[in-house]
């Protein structure tokens, strides 16, 4: 990469935006196709080959619709929420290493930045729900706040564990440490912490909860709260929330890949790093889709109980365990 710095950044900026846009559009397609397969039906087939143009048709439809601001709603906040929900996801992707050199900005506190931006998403949904002036939206916003606060804690505990194991906040550095075959991945570093797979599962669950995905989709809860915080959004306002959901999934899965699955490291030493990164990323994304189309939604207090009574104690335990291991060996 020999482009001068401002152009390089601009290129990456455009690249990331295109990546997020394409991902949001085509993950919807993947989700619909995947849901179809899980439910023994074909999913979208009509627009383009195997429905491949469906996301574009959907986007065009959403763009042509009027953005309605309901009377009595806080118009400024109502319009602000979709912006606030998407921007952090874009920011996070700027520091994710897609390949050994394929990263917009290498930052030595990357991990910190990631979680700092990652939690803004909650505020956006809260703003959206609050500004809508709709009872369902407000209930949903209140739920989302307590849910995401509850899941931030075990997630960060897991991240601290990882921090102790890796000793760095630089994402690229973390990936480099996991070079070699798959048993060098953090997921299988049982010598550092025998409970590493458990840590991964906790991280995965927290990621689902943070991105408001089923079975933790309290924000939407379509059978209880109609469409939750997004009830009053029409047209592209809703579309942006939808995009942000998928962008957040991509970010979450990317972080999981970097932290646990060896990022762009190839387990067998062939093919470029970006290929392996995307392969692992989309395998995780598929598992997210798989989970969504398998389970019913959790009850709200069940979700909080899971976090406070199960995930946090286990996460704390793994944290202590790995610090003990670190001290002993």
């Amino acid at each position: 990469m020999s482009l001068p710095e401002p152009f390089r950044l601009l290129a990456y900026l455009l690249g990331i935006m295109a990546f997020v846009g394409l991902n949001a559009a085509y993950l919807v397609w993947v989700e619909r196709k995947g849901a179809g397969r899980f439910q023994r039906r074909p999913g979208p087939t009509e627009v383009g080959y195997a429905g491949l143009l469906q996301p574009i048709a959907d986007a065009v439809k959403l763009l042509t619709k009027q953005v309605i601001v309901p009377p009595g709603a806080d118009a400024t906040l109502f319009r602000l929420a979709p912006v606030v929900v998407l921007a952090p996801a874009l920011m996070c992707l700027a520091i994710i290493p897609f390949g050994p050199h394929l990263v917009a900005r290498e930052i030595n506190v990357g991990l910190l930045l990631l979680f700092a931006f990652g939690s803004i998403n909650v505020m956006a949904i809260m703003i959206g729900g609050w500004a809508s002036r709709n009872k369902y939206a407000i209930i949903s916003a209140a739920r989302v706040v307590s849910q995401d606060v509850a899941y931030e804690i075990p997630m960060l505990l897991v991240v601290i564990t990882m921090l102790m194991v890796t000793g760095t906040m630089d994402l690229n550095q973390i990936v480099r440490q996991q070079a070699g075959a798959f048993w060098n991945w953090n997921l299988f570093k049982l010598a550092a912490n025998p409970l590493m797979p458990v840590t991964f599962v906790i991280f995965y669950i927290c990621m689902l909860a943070e991105t408001n995905r089923a079975p933790f989709d309290m924000a939407e809860a379509e059978s209880e709260l109609v469409a939750g915080a997004f009830t009053e959004y029409a047209g592209m306002g809703f579309g942006v929330f939808f995009m942000a959901e998928y962008a957040n999934i991509v970010v979450g899965c990317a972080v999981a890949t970097v932290l646990f699955l060896g990022g762009w490291q190839s387990p067998i030493g062939i093919l470029p790093g970006a290929f392996w990164f995307l392969l692992k990323l989309y395998a995780l994304v598929f598992s997210v889709v798989w989970v969504r189309w398998t389970f019913p939604r959790t009850q709200f207090y069940g979700l909080l109980n899971l976090s406070w009574k199960i995930l946090i104690p286990i996460a704390l335990f793994t944290l202590i365990l790995s610090s003990v291991m670190l001290k002993l060996f």
Binding site: G34, G36, R37, F38, Q39, R40, R41, P42, T45, W290, V291, W293, T294, F295
Partner: peptide, 21 residues
């Protein structure tokens, strides 16, 4: 129980679809 639920759905994933187009 969650894993066995996921095993059921993935088994269905690879079966042919049952709908009439």
């Amino acid at each position: 129980s969650l894993l066995s639920g996921m095993r059921v759905t993935i088994a269905q994933f690879f079966k042919p679809s049952v709908t009439v187009h």
